[in-house]
Write a protein that binds this DNA or RNA. Sequence first.
DNA 1: CCAGGATCCTAGAACGTTCTAGTTGCCATG
DNA 2: CATGGCAACTAGAACGTTCTAGGATCCTGG
Lengths: 337, 337
Amino acid sequence: MRSGERRITLADVAAEAGVSVACVSIVMRGAPGAGESTRERVLKVAQELGYRPDSRARLLRSGRSRLLGVVFDVRHPFHHDLLTGLYDAAGAAGYQLTLSAVTPRRGERTAVGDLLQDRCEAIVLFGGNMRSSELASIAARLPVVAMMRSARRKDVDVVHNDDALGSHQAVDHLVSLGHQRIAHVDGGTVHGSAERRAGYQEAMRRHGLAEHIRVVPGGAAEEDGARAAEKLLVDPPTAVTVFNDLSATGLLDVVRRNGLSVPGDLSVVGYDDTSLSRLAHIDLTTIGQDIDGLAARAIERAVERIEGTPSGPRAVIIPPRLVVRTTTGTPSGPAGR
Amino acid sequence: MRSGERRITLADVAAEAGVSVACVSIVMRGAPGAGESTRERVLKVAQELGYRPDSRARLLRSGRSRLLGVVFDVRHPFHHDLLTGLYDAAGAAGYQLTLSAVTPRRGERTAVGDLLQDRCEAIVLFGGNMRSSELASIAARLPVVAMMRSARRKDVDVVHNDDALGSHQAVDHLVSLGHQRIAHVDGGTVHGSAERRAGYQEAMRRHGLAEHIRVVPGGAAEEDGARAAEKLLVDPPTAVTVFNDLSATGLLDVVRRNGLSVPGDLSVVGYDDTSLSRLAHIDLTTIGQDIDGLAARAIERAVERIEGTPSGPRAVIIPPRLVVRTTTGTPSGPAGR
DNA sequence: CCAGGATCCTAGAACGTTCTAGTTGCCATG
DNA sequence: CATGGCAACTAGAACGTTCTAGGATCCTGG
């Protein structure tokens, strides 16, 4: 019961089973070169002793670790959903994941540094604010896949959602409901906000609504949405697309407190389809990212790089889809003013 | 720029600097036994070559990994807050964290299994539904600290919030506002719900309100709170304490949809102080757990076990604190019926 | 001029695996 | 009755570190 016992090793199993260490190694790996009866006996002994292979020693020798490092941000709910998808995809490809978290007091560089020491064969990075040149210097050592961000570097793979298309879907949806005066609350300096903003602007022009284009400064947090709402209320549009769900939640709150009804007076579309947007009394129409698709493609890119198979383009862009809930409806005024 | 280069090792640095491998090791570890000039030269060369110690090889030799395994659930927002605290506490104690996530498709046993292979020196478990006996069998191999759950085993350390006290604080707060008819929405089979329920009952009795004790079945999810609300509405109390914030959110939604005002007609207290409860339009009065305290004590327990220092009691219970927001107020009826 | 002790450095084993290059024993074949 | 071949196993090096046990070199004091 004491915990300091000493770890059970191949040698222990070998001694107990009366065979060589090498033979046990063969059996444990399921490699050819061992007879059926010894195989059974060795497995039984290993089981009894509670043997667990030491992955570190294993990879020290074999060079391969079949380990993929993942950097995620503890504060971002979407990252957690994505982790779920990544575990599945990695497992299917025969790789393990090793996680390193970014927290309010633990930066991205620290998180990456830890992974570098861990001998993983590739690194998957969620968003973050590293510069492309920093990514490149990591990519010089091992394959890097950046998710939910772009990188103007040929040596970094990029897998993300088609932000511009998402904005198009949001605007198309609102226009099909009859809206014309559609504003956009921006995401500031966060990755993807430029693309979402540009997509909004282009979609508006495509619908001949260039004169109604209106971009309000915002950000990724709830308060950013709340502040944007106050600006909008001076001269409210009939609909608004917001950078993300959290910001949209802040906006919703201020709008309703000011006596406007949603979607009666104002339709609101978020972005990300986080669990927040699914809460009953938020029930936000939003743009959902294809989590499993993103995860699968990211792992695919990483594995291709690791195994040196000639791969396709370095950027994979996945289409999102509109999720209609109850914050969007037809505009109340006959023609939106 | 190719990624398959071959890792830079101590030997490379040694050759380049014209010293022995052992000497470089000394310098890299900051151990005594190297002259100032060589120290500088070696560090410079290591820097130039981009040397990074291979933590796996290091710990293979040294036995110690200074690595703490953490099992957390991707779906639980509270776990993420706790991770932040744990990273800080572990860093301060000179340990690294290695994370293993539980996801909807990746169970606790898998998560623990991965850590066991990783040579960490102790395991910290967040909640979960493993049986005490399973915990004990892991604890036979290495120290286990269970957080946010209890374990009737002497060989497992336990660090959690004082659930009963939290319920007392909630009831005390409501009573001090003048409430008498205070109900409780239960958490079902989730860890801590029995303690929170018992705490509620005891606090009610302490205030001489035994006749008003009313426990409604619930759970940890939003819908559980919503369902409980429907039951409560048949004969509404003036206040309710809910198992957790998420459930409270569901309850709030149903209550408001049915035309009751909060806190006018009904005061609501949640539990956990998750980021959800801080959202402007939820703004839930709740019981906050002391995250940094929990994290610090958990690491402390783990390190004590690892280093074999004679430690105190195996269970550490940390008092929570009431966080008053806007979902609680004085009851509207003169004496709450 | 030599003993004694610092100070700086090195050789080589060890950690728990994997892997290459055998070695053994057995059976079939000519 | 040698020979070849195959299946089943083993010895020992290797992976990149740490650590123990020394070996130089130099200074200091008698």
